[in-house]
Design a protein around this nucleic acid. Structure first.
Lengths: 223, 223
DNA sequence: GCGCGCTTGGTGACAATATCACCGAAGTCT
DNA sequence: AGACTTCGGTGATATTGTCACCAAGCGCGC
């Protein structure tokens, strides 16, 4: 559990806010906590508040008409859902949803307070626009990867990002296929190839990284 | 040539601005005109101004490390480059570029004036956030298409979007492949198949639509 | 324990798309 | 005309996606 006093200080982009803006933000926000696995926002469930994540991660993914799923990005502690929320408010009927991957603690800022802050504080504006910009450039990169990058390169990269310093990634082939927007069979075959080369070891529901260096070399090959 | 007097009125999202905001916008912006085929912004060429397009279209595309190109979106008259510009300002070294597809007329708003407007006008804020939201949801859709949609469906859709009411699309196989982020050979083969079915007719540098209904049916099949 | 259903992963056949290495035809320029 | 570039066609092959299965592992009720 995180100390929620002065949570604003824990956002790199917000700690430089003008003092009275910080006070306003702290006074007009509510701390909420939700367990993992909850759909925070999605089709037919647009939230009234902008969330600032204090703890945990939120996964944003999309289900296509064809039934395919793909993970778009994650929101980590210290980031905000501004844009996803904004999108939902503007376009009610689209297919992206946000799911808490872990237990999540967040500061909820009502829409009108958010607008007030944007109007009053240059620092807050900079924070918001930087968040939008980062997200859009990341989406550009993602489009490039999905369109042009080989699946083995993308899988190696994804494993390294998901392992979070550990050597064991607790996930299934199915979940990995959703991460990359491909089919489970493709993941199974690629992991078999990685295993054959001695880079990983597989068990039901987990992948153990044995040779990080080779995976990194593959992932960096042109990403 | 467009009448540039009171250009603000021609933006659906801006016409409802408070009168003094409109005046500020008109007073502090400059009308610029550039011919077609010019790179308006791109790596190593970040503009100082936010552009509001009065006439013409701007194509935003990306070149990947692997040399592959893909068209991300277009900006039409009545829309602004806010987000692309914002991205470039925030992250100098990324690979997207904006090219005028036709002769373009635009209102250029300096960065500090833009910030002023966001601070002072609720309507302007709404316009800006709506533009961001629209773009992000469009990028979500694009990711979905690139990842999951069949190439024949995407090509049919693209032909219909490019024809602009006409029956003849003046483009090359190469350009179409960049539109969809695929290879020229793939486009050539798909167009051959469309032609074999009598849906289109090909000539060097152009595609003539013969059977719009069938193309639409293919494009709508799950898009 | 045992059977039952669900999840997870494996496999072969095949389809769709991408890549590579060419080739020739049609335009452009001098 | 000759050189050069752009445009499009083609076959061979590699990669990835789809489909239809199957079997092993796991949880759960009895």
């Amino acid at each position: 559990m995180t100390d929620t006093q002065e949570w604003v200080e824990r956002f790199p982009g917000l700690s430089r806010l003008e003092p009275h803006i910080k006070k306003l933000l702290l006074a007009r926000s509510a701390i909420i906590a939700v367990p993992g696995g909850v759909t925070l926002f999605g089709p037919g469930n647009s939230p009234e508040n902008m969330l600032f994540l204090l703890d945990g991660t939120v996964r944003v993914q999309q289900v296509s008409d064809t039934g395919h799923e793909i993970v778009l990005y994650r929101i980590h502690a210290g980031e905000s859902c501004v844009l996803t929320t904004a999108c939902l408010l503007a376009y009610e009927n689209y297919a992206a949803e946000g799911i808490s991957e872990t237990a999540v603690q967040a500061a909820a800022v009502p829409r009108d307070v958010f607008d007030d802050l944007v109007a009053q504080s240059k620092s807050f504006r900079d924070f918001v626009f930087a968040a939008f910009s980062k997200r859009i450039t990341d989406l550009f990169l993602m489009i490039d990867e999905v369109a042009f990058q080989r699946i083995d390169v993308r899988l190696a990269d994804k494993l390294l990002r998901l392992c979070d310093g550990q050597d064991v990634v607790a996930t299934t082939h199915q979940k990995l296929s959703v991460e990359l927007g491909t089919a489970r069979e493709v993941i199974s075959r690629q992991l078999q190839e990685f295993q054959r080369r001695g880079w990983i070891e597989q068990a039901r529901g987990s992948v153990t990284i044995l040779d990080r260096a080779h995976l990194e070399r593959l992932a960096d090959h042109s990403a």
